[in-house]
Structures are given as C-alpha cells and as structure tokens.
C-alpha cells in the first residue's frame, strides 16, 4: 500500500546476509514513521529460517518464494517475482543492500517498472511525509541530501552498516509466493567453487597463474559484518605479510582486510579489498598496517568507530584520520602486538 516499506533480503548459499537484517530493521522503523506496514521479501532456499530472522527485526510480513531456480539463475527470476509483488502491493519504498545482488535486482526492477533508484545511501529520514536521503559524494568529502521526484515505488540502496540490525523480537506473517519459472534466455549459475571451507587456517596458496596468494581462513567473519578489521597494504611487502595481519586478526577475533594494491598484485583475493571499489566497512575498530590512506581507501573505512594506523612514514595521509597513529615498522609491531593481545586474552 501507499505507505508500506519493504526490505529486499539477500539469501546467499542458503544463508541470510547480515545486511538484510539491517535493512529489515530500517524498513520496520520507516514504516512506523510513514504510517504504513513493513515487509521483507526473501527469495531463494531456506526462506523459512530467513523469515524468522527478519521477523525478529520487526518486519510484520515476509513474502517468501522458495525455489532452487533462484540459485540456478542469475537475477532474472528474482526480478520476475519481485516485480509481480510490487505491482500487486505497490509499496512506497523498497530498501536494498548495495551488494552485487542488490544492485542487479534493483537496477532491473527500476528499468522494468520505471521506478526511482538511489544507491549508496548512508541515511534515510522522513521529512514532511517525504523521504530525505543522505548520500556521500566526492569520495566521502561531501554529504548530499537527495529526494525522489514523481510517484511510484522508490528503491533505496543502503550501504552496509548504514543502519544497525535491531533484533527487537517479533514474528512475521509469512506469505508464501510461487517461485518464478526458469527464464527462457537466462544466465545459468553454478554454486561457489574453489573457496571450500576446509577448516584450514590462513595460509599461502597458489593462484591460477601459479603465484603465491594469501588465503585467509574461511572461518573469519565477513568483512561487512566484522566488529574488528585488521587490514594490510603495500607496506606488507608481499602475500606472506598477511600471515602477520591474520595472526593479529585471529587473536582479536577480527577479520582481515586489504588495500587495492595488495589485491591488484595478487597477494590476497578481491573479496578482502576495502575501499571505493571494494567493500565499504564500518567496524568498531579498524587497524590499518602499511596502508597510506588514499581517498579511495578512506571512503570505504572512514566511518569506522575507531581507527588505528601503523605506518613508518610520519607524513602518511592516514595519520590525518585515525584515533591512534603509530609511526613505526609493522614487521616489528604486529608480532609484538599479537603476542600481547594473546597474553591478555589468555589464549
């Protein structure tokens, strides 16, 4: 209905993503402010479990379509189902996560139904019954306020961690929807491969072209969801340098991140890149070692609650936006720090 707010949940490999809970929480809050009802849409497998978690974040209804087709084809079946739901119920707003999935679904939906689409949103409020969106611009140097023009459902793409996940408790009514049929002209998708969780600790592996690449342990938290991140850059000197990063991360219960040159030089997989062209993160603590602090890195991590930098160059830009800056050699400091953290934690 006219004032309803929905969240498009994302189920990856049968698991609801953490950002889905954040946008579901925000949908519940916004629906309250607009005087409408909240709902989430969950498409894929294990939607019943997803619906439970989404309900606990305060959404009143979950539209669930369960089917292998959503894992077997890229995006088109999701758009098919979502477009039908939108035409039927005409919500005011749909929140989506600016992940690869969220961007692909929202772009197609907007093109198909002629909807407004705003992405990389870091804040949403209601002013005089209208949505006011906050969007970072110019590598985070400016904050823009934006609004939609015209009517119809509005699609709002939220940055990861823009909103907290509020597990307020509650149970959603689940409305089961028929799964889409396989598209006649579709992109067939395989299950993820080559990244099996073998239970192995982080280690130096071989990339397809034979060079050494650091493979972090699969058990580490996801970058977007981690409370503490230890990131390494070109200052690590090579893929083996990530052993020190991961040792500290493991001692802190943290995860591993990287700057773009570390990824471009094949030291660590792309999934660990933080920054404008990698992941945008907002942990409680971000520790950057051997990272200079270029704007493209900064825009992906500047909203971290606390930033600690270790760099041997006193003039490095990162010292201008950290809470504790240490001018020193990471090869000396990281192992010492890891040992001391372990000692304190008694592990």
């Amino acid at each position: 209905m006219a004032n309803d707010v929905w969240a498009l949940a994302e189920i990856a490999n049968g698991k609801l993503t953490g950002v889905s809970l954040q946008i579901a929480s925000k949908a519940a809050e916004l629906a309250g402010q607009l005087g409408g009802a909240s709902a989430a849409v969950a498409l894929g497998t294990s939607t019943a479990a997803a619906a439970q978690e989404l309900g606990a974040c305060g959404v009143r209804t979950v539209y669930a379509a369960d089917g292998a087709v959503y894992d077997e084809y890229l995006i088109q079946p999701h758009v098919e189902t979502l477009a039908a739901l939108v035409e039927q119920h005409q919500p005011a707003v749909i929140l989506f996560a600016v992940s690869n999935y969220g961007r692909d679904v929202a772009a197609r939906l907007a093109a198909r139904l002629g909807l407004g689409l705003e992405y990389n949103v870091s804040g949403v409020s209601v002013e005089g019954g209208q949505l006011a969106l906050t969007v970072p611009a110019f590598d985070g140097a400016q904050s823009v306020t934006a609004a939609f023009v015209g009517d119809g459902t509005k699609l709002v793409g939220a940055r990861p961690n823009a909103f907290p996940a509020n597990r307020v408790g509650g149970t959603a009514d689940v409305i089961n929807v028929a799964a889409a049929t396989a598209p006649a002209n579709g992109a067939k998708l395989s299950a993820p491969m080559g990244g099996e969780d073998t239970g192995e600790a982080g280690h130096l592996g071989k990339a397809a072209d034979g060079h050494d690449i650091w493979m972090p342990a699969a058990s580490l938290p996801k970058l977007e969801e981690a409370q503490i991140i230890v990131s390494g850059g070109r200052g690590l000197g090579g893929p083996a340098g990530f052993a020190q990063i991961e040792a500290l991360a493991t001692a802190l219960g943290a995860t591993v991140g990287a700057s773009r040159p570390a990824v471009d030089d094949g030291w660590i997989p792309y999934a660990y890149q933080v920054g404008q062209t990698g992941k945008s993160v907002k942990p409680a603590v971000y520790i950057a070692a051997g990272i200079s602090g270029a704007v493209q890195h900064k825009s992906g991590m500047a909203s971290s609650k606390l930033i600690i930098a270790i760099n041997k160059d006193k003039e490095a830009p990162i010292f201008g936006f950290c809470d504790l800056g240490v001018v020193g050699d990471l090869n000396v400091i990281l192992p010492e720090l890891t040992a001391k953290v372990k000692q304190r934690r008694g592990s």
């Binding site: 140097a141 400016q142 823009v144 023009v149 809470d323």
Partner: peptide, 29 residues
C-alpha cells in the same frame, strides 16, 4: 526520478594521538 537538494562538507579528520617509534608501540596499542 531523483534530485539532489543540498550538500555539506564532511569533516573526516580525526585529531588522533601520534605515537612515534617501535619501542612500546605494541603496549600503547
């Protein structure tokens, strides 16, 4: 379907503490 209405600069600078030297750095962190 979208329009920007206003913008303001964001201050991302932090007046952090600077600790110099390897000695005692791990303890300080």
């Amino acid at each position: 379907r979208e329009k920007a209405t206003s913008s303001s600069p964001v201050d991302t600078q932090r007046k952090g503490e600077l600790y110099e030297g390897n000695d005692g750095a791990a303890d300080r962190i």
